[in-house]
C-alpha cells in the first residue's frame, strides 16, 4: 500500500523513475492506483482548503 501511495504521490508531483513505474505496471492493479489517486486528490483538495482557510484567517 505504501508503494502505491508513493507512486501516486510521484504522479501528483509529475516525476517518476522508470524502474519504479515498471514495477507499478507489472505488479499493481490499475483500479488500486485510480482509487488511491482519487482519494489523494480529495486529500489534496482538503489540504489546500485548510491552507486557504488558515490564510483567510
Amino acid at each position: 500500500m505504501w508503494q502505491v501511495i508513493k507512486s501516486v504521490l510521484a504522479a501528483f508531483f509529475g516525476v517518476q523513475k522508470d524502474s519504479r513505474r515498471r514495477s507499478d505496471f507489472e505488479h499493481g492493479k490499475p483500479i488500486v492506483f485510480i482509487a488511491t489517486g482519487v482519494v489523494m486528490a480529495l486529500i489534496m483538495v482538503g489540504l489546500v482548503v485548510s491552507v486557504a482557510m488558515m490564510a483567510a484567517g
Partner: peptide, 30 residues
Amino acid sequence: SSMVYATASIAVLSFTVWAHHMFSVGLPLV
C-alpha cells in the same frame, strides 16, 4: 514516465480549478 504521470496529474487537478474563471463574481475569500 514523468510525462504520463504529469498528464494524469493535470487531468485530475483540472477538476479543482474551475472557479479561477470566476474570480470577479463575488466568491467568498476562502
